[in-house]
Nucleic acid binder design. Structure first.
Lengths: 118, 118
DNA sequence: TGGAGACATCGACATCCTTCTATGTCTCAG
DNA sequence: CTGAGACATAGAAGGATGTCGATGTCTCCA
């Protein structure tokens, strides 16, 4: 995993900017946003995020998520890490289990960036 | 460029689904959406899209866009192609020049997918 | 204390992506 | 018709990404 993936420390959300279509995005901002979109731009990670969000109480244990895919446990763990490091998923360990929860603010900011000004 | 990038034919927009956080995204849908996000998930392409959208009359000529980057002309051409094939940019040739215009519906659909249900 | 189970990390491999240079295609002016 | 300019395509190189099996770490229970 290259360092540039985690531009935001886990838990931090996008301090967002004026909408994409309103004014030219500064290079620096573009380089901040792109990793976030890249984290989202994978079918497995999209489904993971969606599964977590739609789960009861808004959080899901890794064990639940593993079962939903035909992928190895380390692969799922890797994707969850990407989502977590990009600030899209919150992590909390309780006993033996690890639970993930969607950081709705980050998603909302992204949506505002893309869809704002339309 | 692998074939899977252009899931949508150029000009077609996302026939969008229920929001990401509302119900588990079906695998098929996730595989349809991911290429769109992937098209957006690059700092150069983010700035290209933003530049086009913010340009006078909502469209920009490739010659204008080339000047805004420290990248070779074929590289910009490549990124524009990715954005076009994903349905985010509309292409129109007038004389010697090629103009690109943002397909706002595609952006709006994406934003609704990500931010809907928050 | 020791074993089992839940996750994370490591290292490897194949594929994909970004970028480049070189070259092709199309259109207009002269 | 020929040259120049705008843009696209082709092919190659280097780095990034997705996936795996093997292994490590932590926590709980017996």
């Amino acid at each position: 995993m290259s360092k540039s993936v985690s531009v935001l420390s886990p838990g931090e959300t996008v301090a967002c900017c004026s909408p994409l279509v309103s004014s030219p995005l500064p290079q620096e901002t573009a380089e901040q946003i792109a990793p976030l979109l890249k984290a989202l731009a994978d079918p497995v990670r999209l489904r993971l995020l969606s599964l977590v969000a739609a789960h009861a109480d808004g959080e899901a244990c890794v064990c639940d998520l593993n079962d939903a895919f035909d992928l190895s446990q380390p692969t799922i763990s890797h994707h969850l890490k990407v989502l977590h490091e990009s600030g899209l998923l919150e992590r909390s360990k309780r006993g033996v289990w690890v639970f993930y929860r969607v950081q709705r603010a980050a998603l909302a900011d992204l949506a505002a960036l893309i869809g704002g000004g339309l």
